[in-house]
Design a binder for these strands. Structure first.
Lengths: 337, 337
DNA sequence: TTGTAGGCGTTATCAA
DNA sequence: TTGATAACGCCTACAA
């Protein structure tokens, strides 16, 4: 890749490299005459300053890193988009790193981003190894992560808790007594863990019994087995009147399982999930959801970081749309009621 | 951010910076003794070479850029993941750039990536301004884009065409005569344009009539209007027996519209879409789809690029899973038959 | 096998 | 307002 450098521009413009730098970066004085000639020369040579060279001098790489727990779950797409758009607006490039929910991978990713000397790091969701982040943060790298950011905003639970509360109240008012919370893996981790804690607490407050049902990791699940499991669960004596999916992707699997098992929604069992999407709304019965705007959170986080980097004067009050409970037809009266 | 540099490591190890560089990069000779001391020193100072400094010397930034037409459509997530995983495997960082389907934004994004001196660019889907890419490519930057890559693999149509053909054959065998292809915007662009062309051709071959129905851009659409439009369309005399969504996100909107309008699937109209997902499979009736593996395509593209960069010896035969037609219950016999 | 030294493309300092 | 110059952190040809 052959590219013009600052010397060529200086030569063409008939000035020194210092002047070229001043004109194009806008830092430091420059006569109208010089400005014009430099602009013309740069234009003609289609010159663009090398960010890596300038960052060597200025110690600002103009790169923001985003660490994502997985690029398989679509919920992180709005997050990524939020970061990208805000960063882009302020001239920053964005490096994505997928930690694949592995400490090992995360370590490599953080090393790689450190090597690139990113100016700041934005962490989506739950990082596999929070200590690694704390260490990085201690070394002076500006870091924002969903958890502590949400806490600063009044606490994640400040928004998620009430939404869950409203859902539980709704369920209780419909005569339900037991709620089964479905999660993947062999133990709820990350977002699922927090959600489970909040549901448990809220259920208690509303006189509901909450049970956690673990379905094993993605690879181990298949529609037929899921169907059998769900069918047996729902139809067992004293089975739950409500199925609550702890994640949006899981919900689709569960719905297919229920359909295969011939379980009628919401007559036999009520259903709700975290995370909204056009598909959840299109489903019949339409699926009730707890929904937040991860994209807006990401934008707010990015603005906060940009502020710390001095790239933006002041951050507009991060008034985040709170999480909401959207009751739809998949939640109905208890069959016992 | 305070970081150790090569001089400090050299000082601690009691060797010269050249030796440090040689040991840590693995290029050039180094005695076992020196190697050991340098490793220890680097470790103690938690030293990591600055990619921006080294790239200034070596002209390799170890960054690959990905240009995506939009980060709103989830189909690009598997793509992004494919690139990220392969790049990461070979020590490359990935910069994402969302062109937001705008030439203007795309230009800024390309400029930014050029400024960062990315080693290669991978373009997902259809770029707003192909000429800009051609210019970049001409300037020596290795670029792979979905279109030309697929062509090199035997042509995109080589895989997509036959899948569409099978769908059309299936539809024809069920007695259908007319197919309405639904698309957003005011003219099919990007993937939708190609899909429409292929459908049109294939329909003709199977004695089907294909009509393009444009629904306006995302902002202008709402469930109620969509419902009215679809209801009128399906129930008009001589209306289409088949609704074919040109994109996966659109399908959910259409399904909600159909549900609102009370259109029965597949009795009143058959339905199919491009792009599969757990939600499409979970829907009842299960939605028939034309599905390809964009993630695998992305991985193959990345491997090709890495090969060009000399980061990988040889690329394994990119045997891509071809696009397939998955017939499910949303496609049924024509009501006329 | 090792060290010295020059230069990658920029920007900041300082003297003019 | 401008230009010469040093320095950012690293790699590598070359000399030892």
């Amino acid at each position: 890749v052959v590219r013009a450098d600052i010397h060529q521009v200086a030569a063409v413009a008939g000035v020194s490299t210092a002047t070229v730098s001043r004109v194009l970066s806008g830092r430091g004085p420059a006569s109208a005459h010089a400005t014009e000639r430099v602009r013309a020369a740069a234009d003609r040579l289609s010159y663009a300053p090398s960010a890596r060279a300038s960052s060597l001098r200025t110690d600002r790489s103009m790169i923001i890193g985003v660490l994502v727990p997985t690029l398989s779950n679509p919920v992180f797409l709005p997050f990524l988009r939020g970061v990208e758009h805000r960063a882009q607006d302020h001239g920053y490039a964005v490096i994505v790193a997928d930690s694949q929910r592995s400490e090992e991978v995360e370590r490599r990713q953080l090393d790689r981003m450190a090597a690139q000397r990113i100016d700041a790091l934005i962490v989506a969701g739950w990082a596999p190894d929070p200590d690694a982040l704390r260490r990085l943060s201690g070394s002076g790298l500006p870091i924002v992560d969903t958890g502590t950011f949400a806490d600063a905003m009044g606490g994640m639970a400040a928004s998620l808790g009430p939404a869950i509360d409203r859902a539980c109240a709704h369920l209780a008012s419909l005569g339900h007594r037991t709620v089964a919370v479905l999660a993947g893996g062999s133990a709820p981790g990350g977002a699922a863990a927090l959600r489970w804690r909040l549901i448990e607490r809220s259920c208690r407050a509303h006189g509901l019994e909450a049970d956690l049902v673990l379905l094993g990791s993605v690879g181990d699940r298949d529609p037929v087995t899921t169907a059998r499991t769900l069918g047996a669960l729902v139809r067992s004596p004293g089975g739950p009147g409500v199925l609550w999916s702890s994640s949006h992707p899981l919900a689709a699997e569960l719905l297919e399982g229920l359909a295969v098992a011939g379980v009628a929604l919401p007559e036999e069992v009520s259903f709700l999930t975290f995370g909204d999407s056009p598909w959840a709304a299109a489903y019949r019965p339409a699926i009730s959801v707890i929904s937040g705007d991860l994209g807006a959170v990401a934008e707010a986080m990015t603005m906060a970081v940009l502020h710390r980097l001095g790239a933006v004067e002041s951050v507009p009050d991060p008034v985040l749309e709170p999480d909401v409970y959207r009751a739809r037809s998949s939640v109905g009266p208890s069959r016992a009621a």
